[in-house]
């Protein structure tokens, strides 16, 4: 561990020896105790085509969205779920925890600070998982293209299944994006959870290049 990296680390996360209430001393390493940092694995689809097709149909009709608003685009999510557009009709529901979600909507610009949380949340989602990028900011930075603290291309950091362009895209565009995602899943082309694992080192290098205060394990599921 280099000194430069240590500079950013919270002293609470440092490895240390603690004396417990019973007088015995033991070693605490919060970075290892709180997170699991094993390398991710590739999960191949079921080898029987009919079964995989059926499961993909079920996956496409039951999209659980992680409620994580990153930028201004998250303002488009409430109308999507409320009476005007009512995405529940199409099997889209929102979940509050990354463990149970399948779809991650990156709603708009991503500051570097948020990217760190996005990476952690994305890695905590279970395979198969899909990313729907909302707005121009996720494609090329949009109106924040020369900002000092936002990223320009999202798919350098996490793999993206569907882009919904616009500034801001309206909920109709988001629904069209969901339909596109559904057809991708049904065709078996939405395997970006595995792609992330296969190109893991590339993604990690990109993430570390931009996140300077990297004080978490490389992979934290």
């Amino acid at each position: 561990m280099s000194d430069e990296k240590n500079k950013f680390e919270n002293p609470d996360y440092a490895k240390r020896t603690v004396i417990g209430p019973d007088g015995k001393s033991f070693v605490v390493d919060p970075m290892q105790d709180y997170f699991l940092d094993a390398r991710p694995k590739v999960y191949e689809p079921v080898s029987i085509p009919v079964v995989e097709k059926f499961l993909n149909w079920a996956r496409s009709e039951s999209l659980w969205v992680l409620g994580f608003g990153t930028g201004c685009g998250s303002i488009e999510i409430p109308p999507l779920m409320t009476p005007r557009f009512d995405a529940f009709r199409f099997g889209v529901q929102s979940r509050a925890t990354p463990r149970q979600s399948n779809v991650f909507i990156i709603s708009g610009y991503l500051s570097i600070k948020t990217l760190k949380r996005v990476v952690r949340s994305y890695e905590q989602m279970q395979n198969p998982k899909y990313v729907l990028a909302l707005g121009s900011c996720t494609i090329n930075g949009g109106m924040y293209f020369d900002s000092y603290n936002t990223i320009n291309r999202l798919d350098h950091y996490i793999p993206v299944d569907v882009y919904v362009a616009g500034c801001m895209p309206r909920p109709e565009a988001l629904l069209a994006g969901f339909n596109k995602l559904k057809s991708l899943i049904r065709e078996g082309k939405a395997e970006n959870g595995n792609k992330y694992v296969k190109d893991f080192d590339w993604y990690k290098a990109n993430q570390k290049k931009i996140i300077k205060d990297w004080n978490m394990p490389d992979y934290n599921w």
Partner: peptide, 18 residues
């Protein structure tokens, strides 16, 4: 939601790979 949504959700949950 559609009336058959709970069944699809169940299948989807049982079919999560990891």
């Amino acid at each position: 939601i559609r009336l058959y949504q709970p069944w699809i959700d169940l299948i989807k949950n049982y079919a999560i790979r990891s």
